[in-house]
Structure formats: C-alpha cells, structure tokens
Nucleic acid binder design. Structure first.
Length: 632
RNA sequence: GGUCCCGUAGCUCAGCUGGAUAGAGCAACUGCCUUCUAAGCAGUAGGUCUUUGGUUCGAAUCCAAACGGGAUCACCA
C-alpha cells in the first residue's frame, strides 16, 4: 500500500507540487498508537515544495489520495503528520491472504543466490562453551532466515584440528594418563567420559604441569641463575629485568608477562609439544595415529552436543586439509608479486596503504599460520561450490581485524567473490561475575548449561502442568523444548553485534520477554483451536475491533521482518517481532471471547486471527531454531 | 600509544536509513482465575538517552571532542 501511494505521488508530482518528486521525500512511519490511523506520511519534506504550512500541505495530499485510492477510509492532519486510515475490508482481505498461505512470509525457495554460512569453528582440544552456544545458535538461525528469504544456503564449519594446542593434549595424555589393569590409557570407552571432555581434561593437565615448570624457571631467573639457558635468552631476560626498574605498575606487568612467555618456551614440556607438532607436520605415523584417535573422540563428543542443540551442517572443512592449499596459493601469490619475502624467508603482505599493518603469511621455516589456512579454506569452498555467491563467517568480534585483513588479501589476490564475504561479528558473552576465563575456571560448559536449563524447565513445568494424559516420552520432549527454547531465545533476542550479559537466573525465566512466553501463547492457541470443530476459513465482513486490527497489522509485517532479519543477519529482529506479536495477541485473548462469541462471522474472524498468529509464531520460532509445543 | 566497537529506567535490552509525549521485560507496588491454559492480562512508580559543542524546521539517532567500558595490534589460533 505504501509503495502504491509512493508511485501515485511521484506520477502526479508535477500536477500536485509543480515539480518532480524525488523518492526519498516520501517518508512513511507507523501511526502513533494514541492517534487514529494506520500509517502516517511525514509532511515536512513537502513544505518547501508547496510553500505553505505543513497543515495545508497535509490537507492537499490527503484529499488527493482519498479520491484516488479506494482502500483509504479517511485521513487526518495533525501538525506535520498526515495520518491515513485504511478501510476494514482492506485489512480483512490482508488477513485472508496471510491465513491462506501455509508459508506466509517466506520467499520463493532458492530464488536468490547461494550463500555459505560458517558457524562453530571449534578447536579440537576443548569442549564447547557458552560462547560457542551464542555463535552456533546465531549461525544456525541466520542460515534458516536466509533460506526463508529465498537464498539457498550451505551450512558449514571449519574445524581447527591441527596445531600446537592439540599437541598439548596429546602429549599430556601420553605422559599423565594412568594405565588400567589391561594396560590401556584413559579413553571415552573405559572412562565413560565424553570424548571432547576427556581431551579437554588433558589440555588442562598440560597447562597445570606447564605452569609448575614455568614457575621453577622463573624462580631461577629471579635468583639471577641463568646456567644452562641459551645466551640470547639470557641477554633478553636480563634486558627485560633491567627495563622493569622505575616503571609504573602496568608497564611492569607487561614486562613480567613477556618474561613468563619466554620462560614457558624454555620448559621441557613446551619443547616436547613443539617437537610433536614438527613430527605431525612430517606425518610421523605414531603421532599422526594418536592425533587421529584423539580428534576422533572429540568429534564424537561434538556431534552429541550439536545433536542436543538441534543444529546441523551440510559440509565440514578441516584445517589439516586446507592449510596445504593455503601454503600453495601464498607461494603462487609470491610469484605473482602480491606478496614479498624477507631475508629470513618469511612471506608478508604490505597493507599499509590501506591503513593496516604488514601481515605475516608464512613463517620463516615455511610453515603456515592461522590466516594462511583461512585463505586456503575460502578458496576451496568457492571451488567446491561453483554457484556460491557469498560467504558469511559467524565469528566473534575479537577477530574483526583478522577478517578485515583476510578479505583484503583475497581481494588483492584477485578473487572477485572476496567482496561478498561478510564477517558476522558478534559480541562476547559476559557473566554477572565478569568475563569468562578458562584460567579462572569460570567458563560455562555447553553440555552442562543445556542440561541445567532443561532440568529447570522440567521442575517448573511439573508445577504448572497442563499435562494430563501425556506420555512420559512426550513430557520429556516438552521439557527439553521449553528449556532449550528459553536458552536459545535468551541468546538470540539481543542484537548479535552487541556484547551481552548472560544471567543464568534470567535465562531459565518463563515469564515476560522469553521464549517460553511465546511457546505458551502458541500452546494456548492450539488448545483453543482444538476445541473448535467449525470451519472458519470463510466469513463475510464482520466489524473489526481495535485489538483485532492491531494484530492483523503486525501479522502483515512478517514478510518484511524476514527480509530485514536476513539483510541485517539479525535473528534479534525476528525474535523481538514475535514477542511483539504475541503480546498483542495475549491482550486480545484476554479482552474478548473467541469460542463463545455469538456472532458467527466475528467468531470465525477471531479464530482466523488466532490460527494465523500460531502459524507465524511457529514458523518464526522455527527460524530461530526453536520448537513450539502443542500443549504445555 | 595506534585502530575499531560500545555508553538509553535500579538491572537486562528495543528504538529501521533523523520526525509527534523515548519503549519492553525483570525487580517493587495495586488489581483480575465459578468463563477459551494466570507460563496470562490491566495498572502505579521509575529517564538530563554519559557530557559538551555542531549540523537541521526537528537529534537517543548524523558529525566532532571529552569522560567511562571493551576488543585488537604475535613467526598464537
């Protein structure tokens, strides 16, 4: 309707205003709730053209519109605002259109370009935690929203399965895992531990021992005992120690950190770990087999977690595969003159013209760094999917700089698709106690958290219960639907770009702006509809009440909401919309009777509204990765 | 220190490319279940939109600076 008016005004610009109209002077906004009208044209921009007061201008446009568009019922000019009211039959017709389509709001399948969405990029040395949960729910939901907006989508992840961190776990397992009576070290089968948890345990174990060894070295250095250390190390430490003198606290701390770092690298443990990495790169069979075994445990553990989260992937990429391609294309780029080589053999790109720094792409020993494999992965993906038009990387905003650099490098290498790569940069998740820190043990484990929210949903649902006659199996399913729904909604309702606070007490809340609030409204409607046996698809035009019209208006926004959630990559837009819709419905539900309404057209209208709200709530929540129950 | 992000009610968050009297939820206080599921609804109270300038008919929104918070600047990933 608004675009129709826009067209009409532009077409008649000369006659009405004495000059051609530019499209952006025509601005619409929803009408204030306390004023009559369905939408509002802002008149101020026209005042200059018409050289009259805003009131006169509004009047002139209003009288023109009402005589040209039959759906306009009336208009009213208040200050500089032209409030336009549409006829009831226009709205009733819109409702019928929405109600008649099962997939109302969704765009034609695969009518838009193919994009790949990467989410979840775990390291294989640690279990998933709360931060991953935000990442994964976000990426999954963005994928579903993009599909609903008409894109075809490939969901993927990049598994960081190689590097020093895995070697640490492997080494610690070899050194510290006790042998059982049959001479086996710990594994998921003989301990009953989830694979990722077991490997994570040995990563922590490594850190523990490393810390002890590091402390020992630091003690020696503090006593100025440097025997047995390399000369260059000794001079560096002595230089740093001297530099501490007279500095303020903060500067001293930086220096101490540097000394610690050097001490860590002097430990036997670190040396062994690094040596293991070298053996891995050389495909030493023993190391390689161990690596495969332990990663295998982790993957099994991850799959369990993903399945509990109800997310899936179409394609997996492993850095152990793609880093080789990365190295290859960097070498190629060196020959093509995109990169340059320093005397020690390391390869760099100079991005100072773009306001960034110089960036290392290959170490002097020829091994790959983080960004090398990312370059390889990106190229491989576009090779694997020739129809692919764009990439979305769901990665925390701590890596903003990294992706800026990555996309720029890909562009400089001549990949046209590089400009369609997008870093979906989400904010960190904080706890009421502050940042999550693995060193301080404040990391919230993903599996534990999901178990807890489901447990809590179980208890609260048992208290309230409308579950008579439900099978045990269905009840368990319901508890998990509610618990997980609450958690997902809690993490998705805030703007992805923003840092957010995770309050455990709030995340299991069932009242107010929560997932279960929406689920409950859905269940209530379903129960209502189940009690009615009448066919309400056809009705004549009943009188349209205030709250009924409001809901219809909000329902009609659903397609736009999907569109903007897709273009903004923001499930939060959708989540907040669904809350708004349901809130309006609850108000309506409480203030009128539906089943017992005597006037049959009105009753059918209300049933249609109810079923449409349930439909949009259900489809909308599905795009957030959340199920809605029939009963609760 | 350089670069980037953020600052809205006691707390957590909405507020689209500038538009009418800045909105929700939680927490606090009042009411509403013999009537379709009260996980609900209605209401009260709570604000110098961090501050100061600027642009504009009009600023929470755009620009600049200050203050406060965070991230990042590795031959780590």
């Amino acid at each position: 309707m608004e675009s129709e008016i826009k067209k009409l005004l532009i077409k008649n610009g000369q006659a009405l205003f004495g000059s051609e109209l530019i499209e952006n002077v025509i601005q619409f906004q929803p009408t204030r709730k306390d004023v009559e009208g369905d939408f509002t044209l802002v008149v101020f921009p026209f005042v200059k053209l018409l050289k009259c007061s805003p009131e006169e201008a509004g009047e002139k446009i209003g009288s023109f519109l009402i005589s040209h568009i039959s759906e306009i019922d009336s208009y009213e000019v208040i200050k500089g605002f032209l409030n336009i009211k549409l006829t009831d039959s226009y709205w009733l017709n819109e409702l019928k259109k929405a109600a008649s389509k099962k997939d109302f709001g969704f765009f034609e399948l695969e009518s838009k370009p193919m994009v790949m969405v990467e989410y979840s990029s775990p390291n294989t040395n640690k279990p998933l935690h709360l931060g991953h949960l935000r990442n994964i729910f976000l990426g999954y939901s963005v994928s579903e929203i993009l599909k609903a907006a008409g894109h075809s989508v490939v969901k993927t992840q990049i598994i960081n399965d190689r590097g020093i961190h895995i070697c640490k776990s492997m080494l610690a397992w070899l050194k510290y895992s006790p042998l059982n009576e049959v001479g086996e070290r710990e594994n998921p089968a003989n301990t009953g531990l989830k694979g990722d948890k077991l490997v994570g345990k040995y990563y922590v174990e490594f850190d523990k021992h490393l810390k002890i060894e590091t402390e020992a070295i630091l003690n020696l250095w503090n006593k100025l005992e440097f025997e047995g250390f390399d000369v260059t190390v000794v001079t560096e430490i002595q230089r740093l120690q001297a530099a501490r003198v007279g500095k303020d606290e903060k500067a001293q701390e930086t220096i101490i950190d540097k000394i610690k770092e050097i001490a860590r690298n002097q430990t036997d443990l670190m040396r062994e770990a690094k040596n293991m990495l070298v053996r891995w790169e050389a495909r030493d069979p023993e190391v390689y087999l161990l690596w495969q075994t332990m990663n295998g445990w982790v993957y099994e553990g991850f799959e369990q977690t993903y399945s509990k989260m109800e997310v899936d992937f179409d394609k997996y990429y492993y850095e152990s595969d793609t880093y080789l391609l990365g190295k290859e294309v960097v070498t190629q780029g060196l020959n093509d003159g995109v990169f340059y080589q320093k005397e020690d053999g390391s390869v760099w790109i100079d991005l100072t013209d773009e306001g960034l720094d110089e960036k290392l792409l290959l170490r002097s020993d020829g091994t790959a760094v983080y960004i090398t494999q990312d370059i390889g992965t990106a190229i491989e993906r576009f090779r694997d999917y020739p129809e692919l038009q764009g990439m979305v990387y769901t990665v925390g905003n701590e890596q903003d700089y990294h992706f800026k650099v990555l996309f720029l490098i890909l562009q400089k290498m001549g990949y046209k698709w590089a400009q369609n790569c997008f870093h979906l940069s989400y904010g960190m998740v904080d706890l009421p106690s502050g940042k999550m820190k693995s060193r301080e043990g404040t990391v919230v484990d993903a599996d534990d958290l999901m178990d807890e929210v489901i447990q809590s949903a179980t208890e609260m649902t048992k208290e309230r219960g409308h579950l008579e006659g439900m099978s045990l199996e269905d009840k368990d399913k319901l508890y998990s639907t509610i618990g997980l729904g609450g958690l997902k909604y809690y993490l998705l309702k805030v703007d992805p770009k923003k840092r957010m606070l995770f309050n455990p007490a709030e995340s299991i809340e069932l009242n107010g702006h929560t997932g279960p609030f929406i689920q409950y409204a859905h269940a209530r409607i379903k129960s209502l509809l189940a009690k009615s046996s009448e066919d309400f698809t056809n009705w004549a035009e009943p009188k349209l009440g205030q709250s009924e019209k409001q809901i219809i208006k909000t329902l009609c926004l659903f397609p736009e909401i999907i569109q903007s959630a897709a273009s903004e990559y923001s499930p939060a837009i959708l989540a907040n919309y669904l809350y708004e819709l349901v809130k309006e419905y609850n108000h309506f539900y409480q203030s009128v009777s539906i089943l017992t309404e005597e006037h049959s057209d009105t009753r059918k209208l209300r049933l249609t509204i109810s079923s449409s709200v349930a439909q949009v709530a259900s489809n909308g929540m599905r795009l957030l990765g959340i199920h809605v129950p029939e009963r609760m």
